[in-house]
């Protein structure tokens, strides 16, 4: 079981997503438990958020886990606005059966 933590400080914006996609895919390749530290991400837009959704999905599809372990204000604010906190977050809640 290999855990890997990767901190990002570049912007998660439309200008950068093309280059971030292979980086994220490579990080997913490297570990079983991927932890993303996004506390240094100053700007995030919908393209960046979409890429995070993508990364989480790809990790899940590969049977791995991907968690965002630290959020910057920008990241948190957009994830909250898009109501994705629960989807990204650790499974704290099991929906009532």
């Amino acid at each position: 079981m290999s855990a890997i933590r990767r901190a990002f400080t570049e912007d998660f914006t439309i200008y950068r997503v093309a280059e971030l996609k292979p980086v994220l895919l490579a990080v997913i390749q490297e570990g079983e438990h991927i932890e993303l530290d996004l506390s240094g991400v100053e700007h995030m837009d919908s393209a960046g958020c979409q890429l995070l959704i993508f990364a989480k999905r790809e990790a899940g599809a590969a049977g791995k886990t991907l968690a965002i372990v630290a959020h910057s204000r920008a990241v948190q604010s957009l994830i909250e606005f898009y109501n994705l906190a629960a989807w990204f977050g650790d499974p704290l809640v099991v929906p009532a059966a």
Binding site: H71, N83, A85, A86, L92, V93
Partner: peptide, 10 residues
């Protein structure tokens, strides 16, 4: 809950 998950994670 989503909000709180965020808070507790933080």
């Amino acid at each position: 809950v989503a909000k709180q998950a965020q808070v507790s994670e933080k």
